[in-house]
Amino acid sequence: MNAWLACAALLLVAGLLPVVWGTARGPLGHRAMAQNCGTSVVCLVMLLLAQGYGRPAYTDLALVLAVLGPVGTLVFARLLADELGEAPRWARPATALAVGATALVVIASCVATGPGRAAVKVALVGVLLAAGNVIASRDLSAAHRDGGHG
């Protein structure tokens, strides 16, 4: 029994299931935003698992996801621009929640690893994830306003 793993399990249940629900139904814009939140949830789960199993190498998974996840969402924003429709009302709160959760998990992981290169790496993953989430979410909202361009 490990507090990190318990947090990861909790985050999986509380985060991934709403994301699956959100991507499976509703207007296309809502689904894309839910997928964007899914990237954040899973990336944080990876960070928690890396701490829980005591394997710093697992942080690489979070790093790859923090870089490629927003890229995937941007692909959707560009290629589905003319069908995306309005961004959901919960887009802003969801993004704020994701950034807040990212800050919480990253700070906790950094404190647990102690000062050093590993902590800087975790912080880098957190910054990339938060920035990617905000950029992708903004792009999803802007794609509707500008209409299709491509």
Binding site: L12, L16, V19, A24, L28, A32, T39, V45, L65
Partner: peptide
């Protein structure tokens, strides 16, 4: 298919976990 692609990317995340 376009909506399936969205669900598929979430499926990829779940598989990774």
């Amino acid at each position: 298919p376009a909506r399936q692609a969205l669900v598929l990317s979430v499926l990829g995340l779940a598989l990774a976990v």
